[in-house]
Amino acid sequence: MSVTRDQIVTWLEKTAVVLDANKQYLTDLDAAIGDADHGINMARGFTKVMEKLPTVADKDIGNILKTVGMTLISSVGGASGPLYGTFYMRAGTAVAAKEELSNEDLAAMLQSGVDGVVQRGRAELEDKTMIDAWFPAMAALKTAVDNGDSITNALQKTVAAAEQGMKATIPLKARKGRASYLGDRSIGHQDPGATSTHLILNALLETMQEGN
């Protein structure tokens, strides 16, 4: 079982659709503890990605993802631009020249992306950031892939872990980003970055479910 280049492209297209559909939701989450632009920025970034995608859709997966990363870095702004931009750039670097991915490749690719996010943003678990969704999701993916799960089963566990991590940000007090200035007032709100991370991973799951 492998992940094809076309499936990666489909994943990106689905990501664009789901982020646009959740533009208001993400922005509302951000308005509660940030500056009310996360959904708007992510939707704008992925609209640009959709414009760029046809020009690289026949290239290798690494090239496609690096283009996505550069596009996000140069069009999103805010904190999410460099963070998600770095995620796709590093993910792309990890699978340079590959036209299809084994389950292990996919897990390594996502993990490289998350490592890049940590390096750029210096967030730790329970700071109430996207890391709170990424870390448990990556742990679940690695365990499932090591156990030889099918890709859809592995991604189901990944998305479930991301969702749990996302919901677990609600009682947390923010220690990074703009929400950290609210102190205790950030408690009781779900982190918008962890939410967009869950949406992105869920788009990957849906892509792989369709293909099987």
């Binding site: 500056d35 009310a36 632009d37 708007i40 920025n41 704008r44 870095i73 140069s74 069009s75 999103v76 702004g77 805010g78 904190a79 631009g81 460099p82």
Partner: peptide, 12 residues
Amino acid sequence: PGEVFTSPTPDQ
């Protein structure tokens, strides 16, 4: 200048 209340980007 970035978008309203949004940081500009590195390429700028």
